[in-house]
């Protein structure tokens, strides 16, 4: 039986998202497809699959990404879906351990990519903010109707800055650890 669940995760909470998907899989709900805040599950054997998420440098249909995904598939990994540059991967537990990264360098690189994504989100928010400020300057009468929008922008902006701080903190912690070990 198939069913769809709707749930929102921030980009910087991808580890929580991964955990949730794996908890579902442990209960026999196997992720089959993804969309914007949308997860399609199919009922199956509990604990059959282990899932991982990765934010790629390029879109999943970019030749570089295609060759990477094909490489993963050769190791028994299945690509169940993508959203933007996120890819959702799984492997049967019976086919052995499934990890995407086995050293600090590749984990650092992944967090670097995610930090870059958050910078892009911040830039977009700043652009919108600048646009609405410009409207208010050119039409001062519109100011009062813009206040709720400003509040929404402010909340989103603060949230995103927190996400950036969280990601940068993990990145820096891994970088520091890299001085000591691989």
């Amino acid at each position: 039986m198939r069913f769809t669940a709707h749930k929102a995760f921030f980009a910087w909470d991808f580890e929580e998202e991964e955990k949730w998907i794996n908890e579902m899989a442990a209960k026999g709900m196997n992720l089959q497809g993804v969309g914007f805040c949308k997860y399609v599950f199919e009922e199956g054997t509990p604990g059959e699959y282990q899932y991982h998420l990765e934010w790629l440098k390029n879109r999943p249909n970019h030749p570089e990404s295609v060759s990477y995904i094909r490489f993963l598939e050769e190791t028994g990994v299945e690509h169940v879906g993508s959203f933007k540059n996120w890819i959702y991967l799984r492997k049967k537990r019976a086919d052995g351990a499934f990890d995407l990264f086995s050293d600090l360098d590749s984990r650092i690189d992944h967090f670097k990519r995610i930090a870059r994504l958050i910078y892009v989100i911040l830039a977009i928010i700043a652009l919108y903010l600048a646009y609405s400020v410009w409207i208010c300057i050119s039409r001062p009468a519109a100011l009062s109707s813009f206040i709720p929008i400003y509040i929404v922008y402010a909340v989103i902006l603060i949230g995103t800055v927190f996400g950036l701080i969280k990601t940068r903190r993990t990145y820096n912690r891994l970088k520091k650890e890299r001085i000591m070990r691989e």
């Binding site: 990765e54 990477y68 993963l72 990890d99 995407l100 990264f101 086995s102 360098d105 590749s106 992944h110």
Partner: peptide, 11 residues
């Protein structure tokens, strides 16, 4: 002892 993960190996 050493288990290479697919993503690390690809990189």
């Amino acid at each position: 002892r050493v288990r290479l993960a697919a993503g690390t190996l690809y990189g």
